[in-house]
Amino acid sequence: MTGLNKVVQSYQDAMAGLVDGMTIISGGFGLCGIPENLIAEIKRKGTKSLTLVSNNCGVDDFGLGVLLPERQIKKIIASYVGENAEFERQMMSGELEVELTPQGTLAEKMRAGGAGIPAFYTATGVGTLVAAGKTERQFNDRDYILEQAITGDFAIIKAWKADRFGNLVYRKTARNFNPMAATAGKITVAEVEELVEPGALDPDEIHTPGIYVNRVIQGTFEKRIEQRTTRASGES
């Protein structure tokens, strides 16, 4: 009996059940707070025709970008995709379908998906290409467009700490899209830096309750920095 214990021992087990054509929602902003080992496992598995939902698509050799060379991604829904030469090539040639979505709308689509809300109205994107084909409606004399929620077959997320029940705590701005992504997957897989016993995390400080999480795996992380900006010590 595994009961509430969500811990799996291998990355193979963590991504078991992922097959061609599925939709995956990923946490992370740039390379910060991305589930880097789960992404590596998807690459190893060679799963194809995936729809990816993620704010960004990594860089050429790290993050979701590693799924591009073998053309594992059929479609990506993202807000900003500019850091990746292979991405640009596949987008321009039409090999990769890209649905650019405003960042706040993307976050809300995931949140709504996880919360059982099928769609919501927002002013973001009114009068732009984003509004094309969408229902428009006025509330209080202002125009809004109807945006549909997103759910995934899988959600892959990165947290700082987890207990065996899948309660999660994130660290600093590595939180970003992870909490919403966690709610929106049929199977949500969290990889974490530190695994603790139930009771060790203060219930008041849990960011993602374990009800959303199906599998937890402890990993080691490179945590690559995309824009390393520092000031000389003493300078203020």
Binding site: R224, R228, T229
Partner: peptide, 18 residues
């Protein structure tokens, strides 16, 4: 921006800068 000692991959801004 952080000093070298303060540099933290988990703490970035919207431009992805530490």
């Amino acid at each position: 921006f952080p000093s070298e000692a303060e540099l933290d991959a988990d703490l970035i801004n919207a431009g992805k800068q530490t």
